[in-house]
Design a protein around this nucleic acid. Structure first.
Length: 813
DNA sequence: TGGCTCTGCGCC
DNA sequence: AAAGGGCGCAGAGCCA
């Protein structure tokens, strides 16, 4: 964070502290609800504090009726869920009703009556953060002084004749912050216009600040030149909302942004990961008098359109200022860790990955002919009328089929259910086998072998994707198609063959992938402090055999031959896998049956010589109990601890410190460093402030789903943080290091792996990546004991194997 | 026809 | 009755 901004944050914090004493207004507030709200009125009490609320749920047909009613009762503050009122205020035409959820938190002032919309009261019961949001929105009326008072919104259209004074204005040394936002056209991937909002201190303003906003249409090369100047010559810190989108377009126009430091979507994600993060939501959450303007910006009037573009940057700057003031230290810490991911992700997004189009077309043909074959067989068996096909993707048709096959009891037609049905009869086995095969191929063809996903302009064989650091609650990155309206999610490409063999290294380069090994199992072991599990993941010659031995009380030697490195009892080892995976994450007996399949449950009963009268549920329960006996701290310490933490603090704090790579080497060479780290834990942790903190809105004491989400969080998040650290290190040390950058291409990261390319002859770079992924982690487990560990990483694909370098992605597996 | 939700399924 | 988590996308089905 820049010094300037730190000063601003301190100032805002001070301002806020003074306001803490702000007393809620003592005038009454009117809630104008609807009939649907009535049942939830008692829940409203917990959202309004000591404010006196008058309730009215009668229908509203005209604005006059509304204002007269308020005036007759001397009421000037109204919060409401009334869509009719919203339509009247927006002067809404014949279009479908505006969505109330968009307008929750929106503020209107009509004839001196202040109106704030909130979500239907039902959400107090059904949405995890419903009460939190309603309280926040209602406080716009009940405690207005506690809200930031933004400076006036002023805006201008600039062009080649008048841009110079605007540029000079934004270039002033005392400009604190500049918000930027591009509006784009899908057509030709163009920038239509963009907006800049500058922020300055100004003691003459009530807020202490003033702003200026400029909108520039990109309709000529001259305008592009102006944009380049505005982006690069202005030195103030920049803020954008999901700016990775904007900087992708800026890269396309060779208009890089100088000093991009703040991203409002990431700031909000760092603070409230479970809440929505779009600009409309942020504005209504952070700015008292904000209203949702996206509907109105859907206009053919260009001037109006520019005005909404201007409002976007103004709103972005305001949101940033308020968050700097309000975010607690742990959220700032989250942000400091998360924001730097922007740059390696940006690099990956612009680079994409090459696709062998002719291979892809060939794969499509092959897949489709196999699909047609299965489809023909299926239609024959089902005697489908000539000229039509039974649609295996239609839940409707599938339900009918299941009914005919005597499986009307199955509520779903997904793979699990079909497998259940297949266990019931050989006929089902045959017919539904076709169905599953056809579905598999259809999925592969429709989602993964699609011509037309390429970036069509210059490089027609290039597949793009986006990697989004604020895409998940746990801190994992998410992936989807690229901001250029093309491309794919790079994180769910099917493994094993057909699809990955159509992704190809660039000319003169080889692909490789480095994986963290059993990362989440290791993280779970250390988070729980279960020494049995720690020993198994760290020291057993074969983790799953060790599990099988522990769960089923059979000597390890009978399952795994250490000398030969061979599995002796495959069925038992195989059974241990789902049991381990499930029990780690609090899976119930019924799901275990589904996951394993009834056949395997019976197999387990037989192999373990269980009571032959045991039901499937009893067998599954027995299996899970064996897990908890073998690794008692998973449930008793880790699961219980995480849930207790959420209930007591509303947070999940990852009490972990990641060390940099230089320290890794030192540690690996000198184990005594480990002890030093352990003894200095409190100091280190205070300095580092934890790895990731998640604000939790769900109630794990009331819902198993919520409990499971929070139980899954710590290992998933810890692993994500570890990989993110190494992703940044690889970026800095290798990808942008002039010494290596010509010979190295960072491609992507997929949850526990990093994918890259090295120039042929530079295979040592794979090892450099691997070393940087072995980040030592020091963590205080839920047993309150500090331990250090390293998740080992292994290189896949490349010259370290006999098969030579990997030209196709499939060859890295 | 476009927009929305639901179902099903790919990855870790 | 409910019965691991985290994502994003295609197709079906429904509505206006």
């Amino acid at each position: 964070m820049s010094t300037q901004l730190q000063v601003m944050k301190d100032k805002l914090a001070k301002m806020r502290a003074e306001k803490k004493n702000a007393v809620a207004v003592n005038s009454s507030v009117l809630f104008w609800g609807t009939g649907h709200d009535k049942a939830y009125l008692p829940m409203l009490k917990s959202c309004v504090g000591s404010t006196h609320v008058i309730v009215n749920t009668t229908a509203i047909s005209t604005l006059t009726q509304f204002t007269l009613h308020c005036k007759s009762k001397h009421l000037t503050k109204v919060f409401t869920t009334s869509v009719p009122l919203l339509r009247l205020l927006l002067k809404w035409d014949k279009r479908a009703a505006p969505s109330l959820s968009n307008y929750a938190g929106s503020y209107f002032n009509i004839e001196g009556i202040e109106i704030v919309f909130i979500n239907p009261l039902k959400q107090l019961a059904t949405v995890s953060y419903g009460k939190f949001m309603a309280t926040r929105h209602i406080s716009k009326l009940s405690n207005p002084d506690n809200w930031f008072k933004p400076p006036e919104f002023k805006w201008h259209v600039i062009d080649e004749r008048n841009y110079e004074s605007a540029l000079a204005c934004l270039k002033q040394d005392n400009c604190l912050l500049i918000g930027i936002d591009v509006e784009t056209l899908k057509d030709h991937t163009r920038i239509k216009c963009l907006s800049y909002t500058g922020l300055w201190e100004d003691s003459s303003e009530p807020s202490g600040y003033h702003t200026e906003t400029y909108v520039l249409a990109i309709d000529s090369m001259f305008a592009v030149e102006i944009m380049r100047k505005f982006n690069w010559d202005t030195k103030a810190a920049k803020v954008m909302q999901n700016g990775k989108y904007d900087i992708a377009y800026f890269a396309r126009y060779n208009a890089p942004v100088y000093n991009y430091q703040y991203d409002t979507a990431m700031m909000f994600h760092s603070w409230y990961a479970e809440l929505p993060k779009d600009l409309g939501f942020l504005n209504s959450f952070l700015i008292r008098e904000a209203y949702y303007w996206k509907d109105l910006s859907d206009t053919n009037d260009l001037y109006e359109y520019y005005r909404y573009n201007a409002l976007d940057t103004w709103g972005t700057v305001m949101a940033c200022v308020v968050m700097l003031a309000e975010m607690p230290d742990w959220a700032i810490k989250n942000y400091k860790d998360e924001f730097p991911l922007t740059f390696p992700s940006h690099m990956c997004e612009l680079r994409g990955i090459k696709r062998d189009i002719s291979r892809m077309e060939e794969a499509y043909k092959q897949g489709d002919s196999i699909r047609a074959e299965y489809q023909a067989r299926l239609d024959t068996v089902l005697s489908t009328p000539e000229g039509s096909e039974f649609n295996v993707s239609s839940p409707k048709q599938m339900k009918q089929l299941l009914f005919i096959l005597g499986c009307g009891d199955l509520k779903s037609a997904d793979e699990k259910s079909l497998k259940k049905a297949m266990d019931r009869s050989p006929i089902n086995q045959r017919i539904l086998g076709y169905v599953l095969n056809i579905r598999k191929i259809r999925k592969e063809l429709s989602t993964y072998i699609t011509v037309g996903k390429e970036f069509q302009e210059k490089n027609k064989d290039r597949i793009l994707f986006s990697i989004n650091p604020h895409g998940t609650d746990t801190g994992r990155q998410a992936s989807r198609e690229h901001a250029f309206w093309c491309g794919v999610n790079i994180q769910n490409i099917p493994r094993g063959g057909a699809v990955k063999s159509t992704y190809v290294a660039d000319e003169g380069f080889a692909l490789f992938e480095v994986d963290l090994e059993q990362a989440e199992s290791r993280d779970t072991a250390y988070l729980s402090g279960d020494t049995n599990l720690i020993n198994a993941v760290e020291h057993s010659p074969d983790f799953h055999s060790a599990n099988a031995s522990a769960f089923f009380g059979i000597p390890f030697e009978d399952i795994f031959d250490v000398k030969a490195g061979k599995v002796l009892n495959k069925p038992l080892r195989q059974l241990a896998k789902p049991v381990n995976h499930g029990a780690n994450y609090n899976m119930g007996a019924y799901v275990l049956i589904d996951t394993m399949g009834v056949a395997h449950i019976w197999l387990a009963k037989e192999l373990l010589a269980l009571n032959k009268f045991f039901s499937a549920v009893q067998v599954a329960e027995h299996l899970l109990e064996q897990f908890h006996k073998a690794y008692p701290k998973i449930r008793a310490v880790f699961h219980k601890g995480a849930i207790k933490e959420v209930l007591l603090t509303g947070l999940l704090r990852s009490q972990a410190v990641h060390h940099n790579w230089t320290e890794t080497k030192t540690m690996l060479e000198n184990p005594s460093i480990k002890d030093k780290w352990n003894s200095e834990w409190e100091h280190m942790y205070t300095e580092a402030g934890g790895a990731w903190t998640r604000r939790c809105f769900k109630d794990p004491s009331k819902s198993k789903t919520a409990a499971n989400a929070y139980i899954a969080h710590p290992p998933q998040s810890l692993n994500a943080m570890t990989l993110n650290k190494s992703f940044i290190t690889v970026y800095k040390d290798i990808a942008i290091n002039p010494k290596y950058s010509d010979n190295f291409k960072l491609i992507a990261q997929v949850h526990d792996s990093i994918i890259g390319q090295y120039r042929l002859g530079h295979s040592y770079l794979m090892e450099m990546v691997r070393e940087r992924m072995e980040v030592p982690v020091t963590i205080k487990g839920y047993d309150n004991i500090v331990r250090s560990f390293v998740v080992p990483a292994s290189v896949k694909g490349g010259q370290h194997t006999d098969k030579g370098y990997a030209k196709y992605w499939a060859e890295t597996e």
